[in-house]
Design a binder for these strands. Structure first.
Lengths: 242, 242
DNA sequence: GTTGGTTTAAGGTTCAACCAATATGATGAT
DNA sequence: ATCATCATATTGGTTGAACCTTAAACCAAC
């Protein structure tokens, strides 16, 4: 008989989680808003504090909430930022479901388009930001910050392109690249690419030359993609050893 | 003094979570493997069962684990599939950080390239699968299954392209599209696009004609992207009402 | 040999207590 | 008056123990 079927048991913590997440996605709870204290939520939902905590923890680990202790503490809604989805992809990379060749191919197809869009949409407002990022390339010393500075150019470019999806994708690609570069670095090594290599792209974008911007980006990527493949080998080796 | 600083309190449940996740990503735990029972883990890590549960719950909600109750039950490692990252993106869409215009633009840039790659890599092995997907378009009736069938073509094409990153991205794009189409559907409506619209692409891909495949995909997308913009308006309207 | 109970190994949920961090206001010394 | 210090209240962090629920496996009765 088909009747009386599939009373799927959804765990209470998941129900609570979905309620809270829904409040966030629907805009009832906004950035920086505080959700009620755990004890209150538990009372409200008529579940134990443990269930509430499991729900909140899951949302925290997924990046939706930020938790602070003490009075005036609690769980606060985090901002939606284009980099929040990068960690999931990074996990796929670490688990060897993705390799640098694939990522390079995708970057080579997408980033010239992003550069083109950026050149089309460039405004004087944005130009200062982009210029500043390139200027800052020369600063910053710990390898970590150094690479962040270099990758910021790509991020800001995606932002200027005006397409948030591209912004997310570029963040994903760039964050994996960063992981490889930073983890593969040994003191004294030359960093993957030096300063100044974004100059041509910058010029084309600021000059509102879409085709030239795309072409310059293609050149830039082609130039240092080769080095990444070597770094990946080093990276995988170390990961396996440890 | 800088020494003795930043004992950033990492919650125990997070520590446990990272341990388990690490075991998965590093391959110590593989697909279908079972992690030890909660009580055992608690004893092993010397933490309370609650902390273990928070860790496991978070991993379950993020898609890494599947939990079954009863003897022979427990938490099992889930397969890495290209669709697991789609939910995060969908949340961004629901939260109105992404709109259909942006997604259309990205699809129009990426999918022709995917079709091109598929045409290049096509083997007789894959051809059967792709052919079958197109044949099945005519079947399936609840709107939900129907749309799934139509979107499967795009998924399989991405699979054939041989680039897992594209597979993920296509899954993301297609799953958001599906959400809009299914949620926007009213009985009697014509489905966004009928059957047979993939035929030209299929032909070009099977015939190993990369350029023609890309072109056919571009046509296809252009044709029904307009309809999606209308559906999105409907979708947002309903979401706001509720 | 099918039905229906019993056992048992998991996860699911609750409760109550206590620890830890921190904002704020009270206290008290200068 | 001012500033350091301490007490207190609020909120999350953690523990432990108990009990419920699910479902596989075995067993007994028919």
């Amino acid at each position: 008989m088909e009747l009386f079927q599939d009373i799927s048991k959804v765990p209470l913590s998941k129900v609570v989680m979905l309620h809270i997440k829904n409040a966030i996605l629907s805009g009832q709870l906004k950035f920086k808003d505080k959700i009620p204290p755990e004890r209150e939520l538990a009372a409200g939902f008529k579940v134990s504090r443990n269930m509430v905590r499991e729900a909140i923890r899951a949302l925290e680990m997924a990046g939706y909430l930020e938790i602070r202790q003490g009075p005036k503490g609690g769980a606060f809604v985090r901002e939606f930022t284009p980099d929040r989805l990068s960690d999931g992809f990074l996990d796929y990379y670490i688990a060897q479901k993705l390799n640098i060749k694939e990522l390079n191919d995708v970057r080579l197809h997408i980033e010239p388009e992003v550069a083109r869009l950026a050149a089309e949409k460039m405004t004087s407002d944005n130009s200062h930001r982009l210029q500043k990022v390139v200027d800052d390339e020369y600063m910053a010393d710990p390898i970590d910050d150094r690479v962040t500075n270099l990758t910021d150019f790509h991020r800001v470019l995606a932002e200027v392109s005006g397409n948030y999806f591209y912004e997310i994708i570029i963040n994903v690609l760039v964050s994996i690249t960063k992981e490889i570069v930073v983890a593969g670095y040994r003191k004294g090594d030359a960093v993957v690419h030096g300063t100044g290599q974004h100059n041509e792209i910058l010029e084309a974008v600021l000059g509102r030359k879409p085709d030239r911007a795309a072409e310059a980006m293609r050149d830039h990527l082609t130039k240092f993609s080769q080095g990444l493949i070597g770094l990946e080998k080093e990276y995988r080796k170390r990961m396996n050893i440890k």
